[in-house]
Each structure stands twice: as C-alpha cells, then as structure tokens.
Design a protein around this nucleic acid. Structure first.
Length: 465
DNA sequence: CAGTAG
DNA sequence: GGGCCTTACTG
DNA sequence: GCCC
C-alpha cells in the first residue's frame, strides 16, 4: 500500500508493482481521523482484467479489509518532515500486506511507514482476494470517475447547462478564477454517479466537492424552479450576445470582441464594413478568420476528412516513410461531420524535426493549405481547401512516438470527456514538447486508462457534451 | 506583455 | 485574506 | 467561484 502525490506517481509509477492511492485519500482520512470511503477515491482494482471488465457504476466491487497502521512522518500540507502521526486504518488488502510492498514503500516513499497494528486490533477475517493469485496488481489509482452521459441524469445535465451559462459570462469578463470555480463545480456534477434531485445529493458527498454555499444555492434554485435567473439575465443581455457572435471569428476572443462592441460593431457584416474602412482593426489571423467566416461555420463531412487524411498521408510518406499520421478529434470518435481536422504526425522526434516543416511546406505548394494561422515547431494551425470544396480548419501536431498515446487521448477529446482531473493530469505530464523526463511508457490508450484505474472508453463513446 | 486557442 | 492557473503561439 |  502506497500513498503518493502526483509528482511521485508520474516519477515512480512505472517501477511500482503495488497499488498506489492518491495522496488526497490519506490527507482527508488523516484530517477526519477515519477511513474515507473507497467509492469516493476509486481505489485500485486488484487486476488489470477486472479493471477492464468492470463497468463503472454497476460494479459493486468487494473490497477486502484488514487492519493497518500508518505512520505519517511528515506534514501532509507543507510536505516537510516535521509532524509525526500514527493512525490505525482498515485498508483494502490487494497485495497490501506483502513484504514487497513494505520494501518498496521504504525505498521509494521513505516519508511513509506502514506497519502492522497492535494485536489488540481485531483482524476482520480477510475475504479471499477478488483476483486470481497469479494476477498482477495494477499500479496506481486516481481520484476520478468515469463521466456519465447527459441522458443518464437529466437534472445533472440541466444544472451543468445553466451553471455553464454563468461560467461563460464570467469567462467573458476575464474573471478567471471565478470561471475556474464554476468549471470545477460543473465537472463535479458531471462526474456524479447519481442524479441530483435534492440538495442533499450534493451535500452528502463529503471531501472537497468544489461546491460551496453560493453554487449550492444556485443548484437549489434549478432543482426547485427548473430555471436560473442569473443565466437568463446573461442570455437576454444583447451586449453579451454580440460579443459571443464576434467570438465566432477565429482569432477574436472576449477582449477583442468587447472592444469591437464598444465601437458599435455587433455583427459580422458591421465588422466587415469596419475593416474595409480601417485595415488595422484586426490582426492578421483575425482577418483570415473573418475572410473564411462562413466556410468555417460549416462542419466538414466525414468523407472529406477521409480524403484529406489520404492526401496528407501520401505527402508524409513521401517526405519520410517512417512517419505516419492519425486523424484524431471528432473524426476518430466516428462523427458524421467535423468542426475541424486534428492530425497527429508521429515518428521519432529526430526525424520529425526535419520532416514536419517540410510536410506543411509541400501542402502549401499544392495549394491545399491556403492560410497559416500558427506555425510553431511542433504544431501547425491553418486553413485547408480542396478544389470545389469549402475552406476548413486543420491542425497538425508533431508527436514523438513515446508520447503518442497521450497525445492521441488528448486530441481525440471530446473536451468535456478530457475535462477530468486525472486524465488531464496524466496527459499533461506525459505529452509536452518541452518535457525533459521520459514519459511513463504506455503502448496504447488502453494502458493510460489502466494507469488511471478507470474502465476503457472507446473513442466513439467519448462524444459527450 | 496581453490575447488567443486547443 | 490569499491562492487557485496548461501551454505555446502571435503581435 | 472554492478552499484553506
């Protein structure tokens, strides 16, 4: 049994053969001086197989408990080795009791010591472990739950929708941290395994809910009246509507849009007229966004994405046959049409360095890439067009093959699906062009889900809004 | 640096 | 009262 | 906004 924070997890998880629990579990257990429910923290499953097989909500997993003493030799908050605390716990067993576990704890996590409790503690007779003896325990757990689809719990969906309206309004006002607060609350509601029909359904959660008194009040209003006055005020505000309209232009964000609205520009037509008069009203990218405004409003039919995929692969193979591409995004999720096209270009980082710029160069020469928006070392955002077709948005990302599964998960989305803490965290720490440490090695996306101890969700099931 | 997007 | 915060690009 |  090992408890670790995120930094430890990413550093040592690939070496670890014993279950690891999130530090928050220990923090809160120590704080409240009682063992927190496994359900709230997603304890590790005993084996990879059960992890894959067990559906999220229906699994009434049996946890095996035995008694343990945990000595905490450091202050959980400051992470300094000052405080000393001894707490007796009932823990789920797994391979907890093993000497192997103890030695790993000593070697990797010297701040925590785990010992048998005093003999006065009565061992609840250990149930037989769920997994077969040969099954190897999985590595670590993470405090996230699979997301429920909106149709499962209509009231949860309603709450998220209305809180989302308010959140968006704060985002427009650049009130970043208030926005963050709403985002967290929404993510919480979205991840609940049950429907919120009374306010007690959120009050009884315990731990850090990200739902305080203010949002609790709003949730109550939604439950009782089916509406949220604040959200309706936002939606009826014409200035807000104008800002949102202008934000549909690629490159125009809340600040620019509000500036334009302040100048009396409230529609795309007015914006075009204003640009004709004053060329410096918009920057280069914003002008490209405005130029293709109508085309970019249209979604790209799936068949045309497939055509683009075929074309890009041919270019890539011609530049370097060891490199391949993968179209991620909504295309990979199987949608009939896509808002834009996300393409991962993956291979050895060495070869990508040379090949990536060459690839975009050739596509430009072909006239397929018509406008550049962002042209970085490892990423390209631009506009593409095939003869007789509309313009469309295309993103290309150069991905070293070690980071490929993380990048794939990241760009397959949907954004809401990715909005879970654990998913974000693990992808962020393992997919980044600037990362120094080698990533935790995984062969495919499924292994990332295993890492997080959540059931695998195929791309087609990730299109949640 | 601010603003923007994925 | 103060912290919370993804990263990398453009202008 | 939430949390400490």
């Amino acid at each position: 049994m090992v408890v670790a924070d995120t930094a430890m997890l990413s550093k040592y998880a690939h070496l670890c053969e014993v279950p690891v629990r999130p530090a928050r579990w220990l923090t809160e257990s120590v704080r409240d001086h009682r063992l927190k429910s496994p359900d709230l923290y997603r304890f590790c499953t005993p084996s990879a197989e059960t992890c894959l097989r067990a559906p999220p909500s229906s699994s009434k997993r049996r946890y095996n408990y035995s008694e343990f003493r945990v000595e905490v030799n450091y202050d959980l908050k400051s992470q300094s080795a000052k405080r000393r605390k001894v707490v007796d716990y009932s823990l789920s067993s797994g391979s907890t009791a093993s000497d192997q576990s103890d030695s790993i704890v000593k070697n990797l996590f010297p701040v925590l010591k785990i010992s048998r409790p005093p003999s006065t503690v009565r061992h609840s007779e250990a149930v037989e472990t769920v997994s077969s003896p040969s099954a190897r325990p999985r590595r670590w757990a993470c405090e996230i739950r699979p997301t429920m689809s909106d149709t499962d719990f209509p009231m949860n969906a309603k709450i998220c929708e209305l809180l989302g309206v308010v959140q968006e309004a704060y985002a427009l006002k650049k009130d970043h941290f208030r926005t963050l607060g709403y985002q967290r609350a929404i993510a919480k509601i979205r991840s609940l395994p049950h429907e919120v029909l009374t306010i007690d359904d959120v009050r009884s959660l315990g731990g850090e809910t990200s739902i305080g008194s203010r949002i609790e009040r709003k949730i109550t209003e939604i439950i009782t009246t089916g509406r949220l006055l604040q959200a309706e005020t936002v939606l009826n505000n014409s200035e807000n509507v104008a800002v949102k309209t202008l934000c549909d232009v690629w490159g125009i964000g809340p600040v620019k849009a509000m500036g334009l609205v302040a100048e009396g520009i409230t529609s795309i037509e007015q914006l075009r007229a204003a640009v004709r008069k004053n060329d410096s009203l918009l920057d280069l990218n914003q002008k490209i966004g405005l130029k293709h405004y109508e085309d970019l409003l249209h979604r790209i039919p799936r068949e045309q994405v497939a055509e683009l995929e075929y074309y890009v692969r041919r270019i890539v193979k011609r530049v370097d046959s060891s490199i391949d591409i993968k179209v991620a995004g909504s295309y990979l999720r199987g949608k009939k049409s896509c808002g834009d096209v996300d393409i991962l270009v993956y291979g050895s980082s060495q070869k990508l360095k040379k090949a990536f710029p060459e690839i975009t160069k050739r596509m430009k020469k072909d006239g397929v890439l018509t406008d550049d928006l962002v042209h970085g070392a490892g990423k390209y955002f631009g506009i593409f067009k095939f003869p007789g077709r509309r313009h469309g948005r295309i993103d290309l990302f150069a991905v070293p093959h070690e980071q490929y599964p993380y990048a794939l998960l990241t760009y397959t989305g949907s954004a809401v699906f990715n909005s879970h803490q654990g998913l974000q965290k693990v992808c962020r720490t393992n997919y980044s062009r600037t990362r120094v440490e080698p990533p935790i090695r995984v062969r495919d996306e499924k292994e990332i889900f295993l890492l997080l101890d959540i059931p695998y969700v195929p791309p087609s099931a990730r299109s949640i809004s």
